[in-house]
């Protein structure tokens, strides 16, 4: 049914798409480190060429009960439930910043466990629900 011309075009297309996908795959693979928007505390711990004093981003959850704020700065712990990093920040935090919520901190590592942030971003999760529903779920969990 298909003419010879059509068949040759299909095979040309299939071969070029396969080549294209493989090359993009290799490009992305080599870019992998740069595509990451932030490092988790575990990634930061095991990354060997991590320079102290260079601007990076650390992301994870704000550990429960770890937020401590006074008039000068706010301190909290970012955790990925395996490793954690203590963050110190002076400035205003976004509205969604809270315990047990996602957070991304921009700034510099002082040492492997202490991070001084210039900016705090809140990371929103994929859940959307009305306020009443949240109380209902919390009560069920208790």
């Amino acid at each position: 049914m298909l003419t010879k011309k059509v068949k040759s075009r299909i095979s040309f297309l299939v071969i070029s798409i396969v080549l294209l996908i493989t090359s993009v795959f290799f490009i992305l693979n080599s870019l992998k480190e740069n595509v990451l928007y932030f490092l988790t505390p575990t990634e930061a711990k095991f990354k060997e060429d991590l320079e102290i004093g260079k601007n990076i981003r650390i992301g994870g959850m704000v550990k429960k009960g770890s937020i401590y704020a006074d008039s000068k700065e706010i301190k909290f712990t970012i955790t990925d439930f395996k490793n954690e990093i203590l963050v110190s920040f002076s400035g205003t935090v976004p509205n969604l910043f809270a315990e047990e919520k996602g957070v991304v901190a921009e700034g510099k590592l002082k040492d492997k466990n202490f991070f001084v942030a210039d900016r705090i971003l809140a990371k929103h999760d994929e859940n959307y629900m009305p306020p009443g529903e949240k109380n209902f779920l919390d009560n069920n969990a208790k």
């Binding site: 990451l36 928007y37 988790t40 994929e126 859940n127 629900m129 009305p130």
Partner: peptide, 23 residues
């Protein structure tokens, strides 16, 4: 694939959605 600031998809085929029915 990567860590992003953008949240993952709320609606997935074959999964229960993480968006409440009223929304």
């Amino acid at each position: 694939w990567w860590s992003t600031l953008h949240q993952p998809a709320s609606l997935k085929l074959g999964n229960s959605s993480s968006i409440h029915s009223s929304m």
